[in-house]
Design a protein around this nucleic acid. Structure first.
Lengths: 351, 351
DNA sequence: ATGAAAGCGCTAACAC
DNA sequence: GTGTTAGCGCTTTCAT
């Protein structure tokens, strides 16, 4: 199938060592020899095998990337950031997706180890107590987590708890008191849990009682009865909803419309992620924005430093926590009804 | 760093051949020997090297994927489709992005050849006269294009010309006559050119004069003067805009709002791509939707068949052209002003 | 049932 | 300036 260094050597009448030198240290060769060898390379469509090369050396210049899915723009963006940075250092990416499934995470990491990646960047379901990652630590394979938010491992993310708190504060500053948090599956994501903690922080700081989060099914066409129940009574329904991610926020906004509620007039909605398209909505999605591309890039920089690559010129240590921002779009509005300021969300907890 | 088959052999007091058999044909081994070897494997954190293995064999079970960028949801979705299908066949993906740059395309393909990928799936800037692809043909490396729309090579896409025609027809059916097409850079994409052809087809079929397309800068904050000029006169401005992709459509919609025009009341907008989030916009984006994930999956199926993998059970040949659909959202409306039906877009061409 | 050894494509140490 | 050769980790005959 492929021609090898041997074929080239035979074709040009030199030794394989000479061909190897033609590839890796051409200046050592006689100009004529070099030309001859290069001709043969052309003629035979020879392309040196990274396999053979890497077999001897240590590094493969391959890094593994493990993400749940690319259907979520958050990870697509992040991967784009990793790719840009890694390519610049002449590293190749090997991609595996896991669909948030831990069996697939295991397979992914095994595969990448077999491929002898020099290191890996991963977003896992459970970052804290994760035997797979412990094993990587044991065998000394460098890795950096992206988007996972834990102090126990090298992980690049925003401070999800603070970010959520800041988001909810933005709602509080606009006079909202009855704020409900909606989430996807908490099981899937340590991040969602931290975001709920942030919600609690903000509510408690404001002297309000945090409500239990409502877990929503992503794929539903309409809002679940549990949420609709919360919305039925105009005098007591939440004036703002804090969604644990943007996709959820968009689903909710649509559902609210179906239910005859206008956003943000009747109810404000705040998302989380800051997916790029959000800004372009006709009523721009308000969101706690995370710098996803930068998270990817930064994860690479950490990995690069662990791989012993020359650090970039910019001084200072590479950050683990990246700044978030609360992107105020058109889906949140100041509360104008003064009655709502005092009425509380649950009867048990009058403000 | 890593332990090798030799280490395991030494540790368990057998030969490397026995270890190899423990991995690849355990049934050939004495149960005790097997157990012993497996213990050593555990103890040493041994993971067989794909490098060593692949050096002997032919196939690497690696496929290269070359896309312009993952920032565009179209390619992210497509990649997701490829990944799902390839993983199912136990193939690994090696990813390279090109930013629509032909030098980077060259580097990407070279790299992937060096990595001895068994085949590749690519989206390139110029599919027709492309020396890189010709070379792949020469050396017999199987590849399938995705999204590129050409009859000269194996390429999975929608029929861009027809799809655009159908989109414009949807506008015509709603009474629109003054329809203008907006595009990003034609240089970047054979697809954009085909979409313009489709626009022409539809207009000519309706007895209307196709207008020259307006090329727009993606990154502009506001609409370019060239477009604003077209919009100034309510009596003669286009009643509908056909954008060659969704991103452009969203930019345009925002620009129109800034310019004081309401969508779809004053002017209808139709996009192209059908990016998933588009449906979720508060005024859902109308778009000629392409099945991007399916395009990725289908590209894989073609590649798989070229690689000699057992075809899937579903009968019939694998398609190259996938069905598009015109997704009618809220950004296009029937034309109500009867005057507009007769007034033409340019004075030179009275209907 | 297990071992010995050749060979996959390449690099690097050494010899000439 | 160029050739010879050992060896990287593994699979696969061929012996035993």
């Amino acid at each position: 199938m492929h021609s090898t260094i041997k074929d080239v050597a035979a074709h040009s009448g030199v030794s394989i060592a000479t061909v190897s030198r033609a590839l890796n240290a051409p200046q050592l060769l006689n100009a004529e020899t070099l030309a001859k060898v290069r001709e043969s390379i052309q003629a035979l469509d020879f392309m040196p095998s990274a396999r053979g090369r890497q077999l001897r050396g240590v590094a493969t210049r391959l890094v593994g990337v493990v993400v749940p899915t690319l259907a979520n723009p958050v990870f697509a963006e992040s991967l784009q950031g990793i790719d840009e940075a890694a390519s610049a250092s002449d590293y190749r990416l090997m991609l595996m997706t896991t669909a948030y499934d831990s069996a697939r995470e295991r397979r992914a990491i095994e595969t990448l180890r077999e491929q002898r990646v020099d290191g890996l960047i991963a977003t896992v379901a459970d970052a804290e107590s994760n035997p797979l990652l412990d094993e990587l630590d044991r065998i000394g394979l460098p890795y950096v987590l992206a988007h996972n938010d834990t102090a126990y491992r090298a992980a690049v993310s925003v401070d999800n708890r603070r970010a959520a708190r800041d988001g909810v504060c933005a709602l509080l500053r606009r006079g909202h008191r009855r704020i409900l948090m909606l989430a996807g599956s908490f099981a899937e994501s340590d991040r969602a849990r931290l975001r709920y903690r942030g919600y609690e922080d903000a509510m408690l700081d404001a002297g309000l009682m945090p409500q239990a989060p409502l877990e929503l099914d992503f794929n539903a066409e309409d809002l679940p009865p549990s949420l609709l129940a919360h919305l039925s009574d105009p005098a007591h329904r939440p004036t703002a909803l804090f969604c644990s991610n943007d996709r959820l926020a968009m689903i909710v906004i649509r559902g609210l419309r179906h239910a005859g509620l206008s956003v943000p007039h009747d109810i404000s909605v705040l998302g989380f992620d800051g997916i790029p398209l959000g800004e372009w909505l006709s009523t721009a999605l308000s969101s706690v924005a995370t710098p996803n591309r930068e998270i990817g890039r930064c994860a690479w920089r950490h990995l690069a430093s662990r791989l012993g690559l020359p650090g970039d010129t910019s001084a200072g240590p590479i950050p683990f926590k990246l700044p978030h921002s609360v992107r105020t779009g058109a889906t949140i509005a100041p509360l104008i009804d003064p009655a709502a300021r005092t009425a509380s969300l649950v009867s048990e907890n009058p403000a």
